[in-house]
Design a protein around this nucleic acid. Sequence first.
DNA 1: CGGTGTCCTTCCGTTGGACGGAACCTCGAG
DNA 2: CTCGAGGTTCCGTCCAACGGAAGGACACCG
Lengths: 252, 252
Amino acid sequence: MSRNESPGRTVTSKVLAVLAAFDAGSRELSLTDLAQRADLPVATAHRLVGELLEWGALDRTTAGGYAVGRRLWDLGLLAPVNTDLRSVAAPFLQDLHAATRATVQLAVRDDDRALYVDRLSGSVSTPVVSRVGSRLPLHATAVGKVLLAHAPDAVRLRVLGSLTRHTPHTVTSPAILDEQLRRARRDGFATTAEEMSRGACSVAVPVCVGDEVVAALGAVVPDLRHGRPELVAGLRVASQGIGRRLALHAAR
Amino acid sequence: MSRNESPGRTVTSKVLAVLAAFDAGSRELSLTDLAQRADLPVATAHRLVGELLEWGALDRTTAGGYAVGRRLWDLGLLAPVNTDLRSVAAPFLQDLHAATRATVQLAVRDDDRALYVDRLSGSVSTPVVSRVGSRLPLHATAVGKVLLAHAPDAVRLRVLGSLTRHTPHTVTSPAILDEQLRRARRDGFATTAEEMSRGACSVAVPVCVGDEVVAALGAVVPDLRHGRPELVAGLRVASQGIGRRLALHAAR
DNA sequence: CGGTGTCCTTCCGTTGGACGGAACCTCGAG
DNA sequence: CTCGAGGTTCCGTCCAACGGAAGGACACCG
């Protein structure tokens, strides 16, 4: 319906199609690639790209291709997801990271996926799955489960209906996952054990403003047995701090 | 010439004008505001906004206004300024912050301004001037001076020609500033003392790939006398680390 | 309770800008 | 030199974008 990738009708949709060409995560594209992905004749793409370049929405790379530009980058930073949630949460992530030495992450639900809003990993670069700004499935991550557990029924049913497998440990049974979600609601936290990628387990708690869950705060650990109670407690303290500040922020 | 804010001619320019309405830093705008800033009839703005909403470039806020959307936010995260520089530098900023407890910041030069690419402040939220994504003048900040010191002559002359005052301590004499820049080149670091905002002093060093300065790394401190040599040394180590990794990254 | 303001939304006839096929560069490989 | 794969420019046709005007929706006020 609205996700209609119909042959670019309005000009705006063509502009957006050009930008969306980068969505897949490609950082750099040639004009022809761009045209292909946006489903536009090269000539048209060329014109649009020209205007976008002039404005700074796109930049030329050293390799001669096109990439998302600085102007678009800093524009994106004005998004509420960044200005409110992220800036409020940042110091708490810092403290939490300092205390646990674990990779901590903050995510919100965006439709049927978990959108990673911020992440803090060890000082030595550790390979992590979740790039900030990336979207991961709700059923195979700890933050995802928390978000899913408190999502509207419509969303939950939809997600439970299509559980794709990512590792041998991914939960693909709707019944089992539903039970996990129930427990998540009861206990106030959720866990995953190598369900999204091997060697990564995580724990997450909800971030609430009033009694609405607005985000999920998680930590990645090598295994779940080691010191989980302390970790959950730490996450809770941080999440409550974030929630309280957000409430103040919103009231202003 | 190209910065022509002429009455929205091409459709693309109108779309961009709508987005640019947020540039000033406004996080939330009503339709009428939007139309006014973009210099468009309300009816036209309404249609464009509709398309942008559908795509996710804009979002409605709880207050009923419009704000930059999530889709645009994560798109912006694909910009090279983010993916390369920021991700490489992040762990170093972490370490530096942990070691010094100071607010550390990373900036690149964008035309005649310093664009703040990342920032790490104390765990207790400290009011800081530089929001990530914001642009500050080159002549009144430490990172700015570093960037300016290594900028092409054309830029340096242009900036030296219009030194606007921000505090009583802002250097507004081209001669004095030029001398400071010379020293910055010689010593490999620059400082500011309450030149942008009261109570904030900072020190910065260049980040080099090969012999090109690609960014500046700075730290904010309450006063300049206390332990400056150690701070500069720390900054140097981090900046060299970042430079080395960037070089590897680019070579790949 | 009708008046008056502000802001949002929809409609529709006109027209000028967008469209894209085709021709033309540019460059590197064979 | 030829060939091929991008990238760039041109220009006549045509239809989608335009925006004035009119019609809600809501709030505040006398």
